[in-house]
């Protein structure tokens, strides 16, 4: 029944930012000095959901949708204007110090490592902060070494590391105290292919081996496709979609795209699908999975024009996003 345990419970959280109203020109600026009129801007509006132990949940949404605000409220950084967040049954606002013992946080754009010192020194400090005993520290480091090969970096000063190495260093730093829950805020930002691969492997393995619950925000759709069991789409501070990736795809974007390259510029139409792109020899057809099969479509198109090459694009996450963000 371990799988069914709720680790994170978010109940009707709202977050409003106060923005000072500023008038135009000198007159407006002077007026602003005296009156200080402010306006409340809602960043997150009545958001509720639950996350169970061992889930990998992806948070997506356009910039300014409230993803980071939500993740920062869940990790104790921001105070919600109203509503509550329980982690392992404890209110993070009331018992911050106790709750954060069991969470790890990684910000893609902000390292928690000491820039000046060798990586090992940063870990040593974390060992003291989280009161991790030496034996357990060594054990965690062994596990992390198997996944990321971190030990060869321990003596390297952080400022001499590549971005990929530093991200590895940060991943391990967040796992040293063996948290139950790991938050990753845009972890793959700026990483090259092999570093992204290492990061995804890390997320998968700690989820499997340690049953760590993982919440991540990203703009990289491959992260979601390869990692997440569950997707939460946020826009304008509201929950737009919450569910399994393929289920959401089937519900709001139940189609595939057939890309056809012809020998010449003529691209025939077909009544069971939509010609959504046509440039020179290449045409794209979007078809409903229930309307027609890909094989049938190719067959019928090839009867009208000579086909050189075909490929099929699954409706994926970008289609969902297009639909969901458009709402």
């Amino acid at each position: 029944m371990e799988q069914e345990k709720v680790v994170i419970e978010v109940n009707h959280i709202c977050k409003q930012y106060k923005v000072l109203k500023k008038g135009e020109g000198i007159k407006g600026a002077l007026k602003g000095l005296v009156t200080r009129e402010s306006r409340l801007v809602p960043a997150v509006d009545d958001l509720s959901f639950q996350i169970k132990a061992g889930e990998i949940v992806g948070f997506i949404g356009p910039n300014g949708a409230g993803k980071s605000t939500t993740i920062k409220m869940m990790s104790g950084i921001l105070t919600p204007t109203s509503g509550e967040i329980l982690i392992n049954g404890m209110d993070i606002q009331k018992k911050r110090k106790e709750v954060v013992r069991n969470i790890g946080v990684i910000f893609g754009q902000r390292s928690q490592l000491n820039w000046d010192l060798r990586l090992g020194e940063s870990y040593e400090l974390l060992r003291h902060i989280y009161q991790i005993d030496k034996a357990q520290y060594e054990e965690t480091l062994d596990v992390m070494d198997q996944i990321l090969g971190i030990k060869e970096l321990l003596d390297k000063p952080v400022r001499q590391m590549s971005l990929g190495q530093r991200v590895k260093g940060d991943l391990v730093a967040a796992m040293l105290h063996s948290p139950d829950v790991l938050f990753l805020d845009e972890p793959t930002i700026g990483l090259d292919i092999s570093s992204k691969y290492a990061l995804r492997k890390f997320v998968k393995e700690i989820n499997e081996k340690r049953k760590t619950t993982i919440i991540l925000t990203t703009h990289d759709l491959a992260d979601i496709e390869q990692l997440c069991d569950r997707l939460i789409i946020i826009n304008h501070g509201h929950l737009m979609e919450d569910g399994n990736l393929s289920e959401i795809v089937n519900r709001i974007a139940p189609y595939k795209t057939l890309v056809v390259e012809y020998y010449d510029e003529y691209a025939p139409e077909h009544d069971k699908c939509e010609l959504c792109f046509h440039e020179e020899n290449v045409a794209k057809y979007r078809f409903g999975k229930k309307e027609i099969t890909a094989a049938r479509l190719i067959e019928e198109l090839s009867a009208k024009a000579q086909i050189k090459d075909v490929s099929i694009e699954e409706a994926g996450i970008d289609d969902i996003i297009r639909v969901a963000y458009g709402q």
Binding site: K97, E98, R101, F107, R110
Partner: peptide, 13 residues
């Protein structure tokens, strides 16, 4: 600069 983020996620004052 948002420098309190990290401190808030650690179990100390």
């Amino acid at each position: 600069d948002g420098e309190f983020d990290r401190m808030l996620t650690r179990p100390m004052s």
